[in-house]
Design a protein around this nucleic acid. Structure first.
Length: 431
RNA sequence: GUGGGCGUCGCCUAGCGGUUAAGGCGCCAGGUUGUGGCCCUGGAGAUCGAGGGUUCGAAUCCCUCCGCUCACCCCA
């Protein structure tokens, strides 16, 4: 038997209300904040990701789905959302648009990882990018948007962690100090951290091992080593966040896994911390566009994992609106009735009223049973007796009452009844 | 890539050396002539994750593999 590939999952009809809920909320916020949707291809030239994410990162080294196509070109299934957006920004000359350009995406992400709770080989991210200006107000805007998304979804107990990791002006000096410090204590470092010391010293700061954590406490802090401009920028971001009342926690140990980040970085964590807990994160990437061949364009963005958002909604028992089901079920007794049932169903749908007919060969009892099981509010019964009089029976399934009405009044009759509270969502999103 | 736990009908679960592998949910059909939701009855549905062993005999014990899961790692 075939199964969905490891680390991937079918999003079943029963889960779709969550997807519709989250994507609608996200898109609603984007409209409010002026972010426009950009869809990029599912795969890109491999070089785009190698260049942007960084050669030494885990993503590039061991997690990318890279393949050679029939033309011999190396392609990679999108392992993150920012690089493709930047590529499109450059390719379509968006630097000629009023800056900054505000974009969002909703797309599948592929990484070859060992699956675990909240971690998959294919997952979906919602992300926003503001490209073309380095104003701290954009940092605050992006962080606010990320925060409001989680908040408006109904998630409780969120925390926002904030840090600045400097720029090419100040970071090298800091890294030097950091290396110095850890080299002096290298005997007590854990095995992984000994490797990090040479490969990615910033990562030493957020090791979870108690020994390393202790060492990190005494380590030189990046925020003490920021250059004047980075420092001012970071202070501005904090002041603006305070102004709009976004509660944040400074975390000098917060670093991010992609090479392109500069200055502001942040992460959003849920109440219930697990191993794979971060709901979302982001930061500035002021040099990336330039690195990819565009004109210097500072930018900031964030991404959230939809599966993780949904996981937390479920953990916190957040109720989400149902997706509408057809509310009318049209039953029939014989072939003539079936033809009439099909006609009625068609005209109801045409009038915007959801309707289904059951497959043939079932007793009326079985048909009504199914109507009930599907949550229909009304059943139409097309029977020989009424039909001779030019009528059909309409049965209110919640009240258990029925009446006979002329067949040509069905649509009108049911549209009068269609006025219940319908705060529900109509459909999800096309990926 | 490294460790730990787990794998019985679509779903949940019982069985833990000899059972026709049991039950609940769901599904289908009946409970008389054209009527749902409750109840009753019946039915379909499982080569007990796969492959090897051990044994007279294995869902039950052992090994390997696969998958799921938790943690490391990494990240959304």
């Amino acid at each position: 038997m075939y199964k969905a590939p490891r680390g991937t999952q079918d999003k079943l009809p029963s889960e779709q209300s969550y997807w519709a809920y989250v994507t609608h909320k996200a898109q609603g916020l984007c409209q409010l904040y002026g972010y426009q949707r950009l869809d990029t291809p599912t795969f890109e030239e491999a070089g785009l990701f190698q260049r942007s994410i960084g050669e030494g990162t885990d993503i590039v080294e061991k997690e990318m789905y890279t393949f050679k196509d029939h033309g011999g070109d190396l392609m990679t299934l999108r392992p993150e959302g920012t690089a493709p957006v930047c590529r499109a920004y450059i390719e379509h000359g968006m630097q000629n648009l009023p800056q900054p350009v505000r974009l969002y995406y909703l797309s599948p992400i592929f990484r070859y990882e060992r699956p675990q709770a909240g971690r998959f080989r294919q997952h979906h991210q919602f992300g926003c990018e503001a490209i073309g200006d380095e104003d701290p107000s954009l940092d605050a805007e992006i962080i606010e948007l990320a925060w409001r998304l989680c908040e408006s979804l109904g998630l409780r107990g969120l925390t926002l962690q904030l840090n600045s990791i400097g720029c090419p002006e100040c970071r090298p000096l800091y890294l030097q100090r950091l290396k110095q410090y850890y080299t002096n204590h290298s005997e007590s470092l854990c095995q992984d951290c000994k490797a990090r010391l040479v490969r990615n010293p910033l990562r030493l700061l957020d090791c979870k091992k108690p020994i390393c954590k202790e060492l990190a406490q005494e380590a030189p802090s990046i925020t003490d080593h920021l250059c004047a401009t980075c420092n001012t920028h970071f202070n501005d971001v904090q002041r603006l966040l305070a102004t709009i009342e976004i509660p944040f926690t400074n975390n000098p140990f917060l670093v991010r896994g992609l090479d392109y980040y500069t200055r502001t970085v942040f992460e959003l964590h849920p109440k219930e911390e697990g191993a794979q807990s971060a709901l979302g994160g982001g930061g500035r990437y002021d040099l990336l566009i330039e690195e990819l061949g565009g004109k210097p364009s500072p930018a900031i963005g964030f991404a959230t994992g939809l599966e993780r958002l949904i996981l937390n909604l479920q953990r916190q028992d957040v109720a989400v609106p149902n997706i509408d089901q057809p509310s009318v079920f049209i039953t029939y007794l014989d072939y003539q009735g079936k033809v009439e049932a099909v006609r009625i169903a068609s005209s109801l749908r045409h009038a915007g009223i959801g309707a289904n007919t059951p497959p043939g060969g079932r007793s009326l009892k079985a048909q009504l049973k199914q109507a009930n099981a599907r949550g229909a509010s009304h059943a139409v019964i097309v029977g020989g007796e009424e039909l001779e009089r030019g009528n059909i029976t309409i049965r209110d399934l919640t009240q258990g009452q029925q009446q006979e009405i002329p067949i040509d009044q069905v649509v009108q009759h049911l549209s009068n009844l269609q006025q219940g509270p319908t705060a529900s969502i109509q459909n999800g999103v096309i990926w």
